[in-house]
Design a protein around this nucleic acid. Structure first.
Lengths: 246, 246
DNA sequence: CGGTGTGAAAGTTTTCACAGCG
DNA sequence: CGCTGTGAAAACTTTCACACCG
């Protein structure tokens, strides 16, 4: 496959005309993560079937998902990893840097401050806040902890659009409201409570106890299911459940 | 509503006959979390409409979801919080204790060791493991860090069924295989990589960078959407996105 | 040949709407 | 009356299957 032009994305604008299903976007992130791994391993091209197999999806699903955004493939060949990575990052927005604010510097918050995995997709924790005067002024993982009252100034002066909430459940709603008032447009919420915010604010919720609860259900009900089936296939097709929560 | 008998669950067994959609189970966890909050606040009963409004779902969806598992409501009244909580916990399996093993005691792992939110649903980290000899033998958050080679013995002798993977991406697959070999049936995977395991092993994946990526997409594409709409309603109905990942 | 892109079919989930109940 | 439980309809998502391409 010589150095021909990418076959798609007619103009510079993203074709986000009709609304793309959320589940498609979550798979997009998985495709991208896997593509980056493959490219780092030296793979130049990949077919929808190969990519799907690696992630537990069908070839048709991979092609359909990509089809929401344009035409990226070469018939008979597949997709060029480098091109597809570039395109996916354009779509997901991670070719540009995303500074993020974090509120709540407890156990989990401190761990997130030190988490190296955000940088991979151009995210960085730009500033951290806490309501506890004992924490304010400390530097943790190289980041100065600021008073919550500074949130609006920092958000506005730096143009930050995303935030993470890592405070106890009872404070999460009011912190969320302060974030929105400051101009934050999207929130990852680690507090175990449902936030009520204007619908134009994007929310992704991560509740660690709920993740485990999904497993306890699945593992418990497997009993009944195993009993229901009698004889069956021996092979183990190697699959995994989705990611990219909600 | 006098102290009459719960109207449902004919026998002691769960009606997990046909397979319940995963998305229903993830909403069940949200219902339960909210019910527990309401009960703690002193609310005795709740209707499907109220519960749905609090979580951003329709009344019909709440009733349909519950309908997969039995009949829990009282016409004209709604649901009794205490009864419904009990039933949901039976369904999700969290009326019994779930000891969990954790592998990987880095930044994030240490934070999870200290996370108080697991206990709420009867989860507890029973043992933690690391491959790094410098960490083995230390006690962190009151838990002794053991060598990875001890995993099979601990899992078998204590009957543990769930595990959490908190190691770097390049080690996650082999750790997962060791967990499965030891008898683990469900895994929460915090490593940013897709695991390939036999399909009877339940997997929930949490990738913190991907959570943010979903927001960067949503926030970016909001531009296009906002432009597409011209005139519109002023009200702000208060809704939030789902949780309970994959 | 191997593989994409895509309509059409099949399958799944959500919403509607209403009978029935206390 | 207010609300549940549930079939039937609508909406949405996945799979199929095949024309087309290099």
């Amino acid at each position: 496959m010589p150095d021909q032009r990418p076959p798609t994305l007619p103009t510079g604008e993203l074709p986000s005309d009709a609304s793309v299903p959320k589940v498609v976007v979550s798979r997009l992130s998985l495709y991208l993560r896997e593509l980056q791994r493959l490219e780092a391993a030296g793979q130049g091209t990949i077919s929808s079937g190969q990519l799907g197999t690696l992630l537990g999806f069908s070839d048709a699903q991979v092609r359909k998902d990509l089809g929401f955004f344009g035409q990226f493939g070469y018939p008979g060949v597949g997709y060029r990893c480098d091109e597809l990575i570039r395109a996916m990052r354009d779509i997901l927005g991670t070719n540009q840097p995303w500074p993020v604010v974090m509120v709540g510097v407890g156990n989990l918050g401190q761990a997130l401050l030190g988490y190296r995995g955000f940088g991979r997709q151009n995210f960085s924790i730009y500033a951290a806040f806490d309501a506890d005067p004992a924490k304010v002024g400390q530097t943790i993982q190289g980041i100065l902890i600021r008073p919550l009252d500074d949130l609006p100034d920092v958000v506005k002066s730096s143009g930050i659009r995303l935030g993470m909430i890592v405070v106890p459940a009872q404070h999460a709603q009011s912190v969320a409201e302060r974030m929105v008032a400051a101009g934050i447009e999207g929130i990852v919420n680690f507090a175990p409570v449902t936030l009520s915010l204007p619908p134009q604010v994007q929310i992704v919720a991560v509740d660690l106890a709920i993740e485990l609860e999904q497993l306890s259900f699945a593992v418990t009900s497997k009993l009944a299911k195993a009993a229901a089936e009698s004889a069956q296939t021996p092979a183990q097709p190697l699959v995994q459940d989705g990611a990219a929560s909600a």
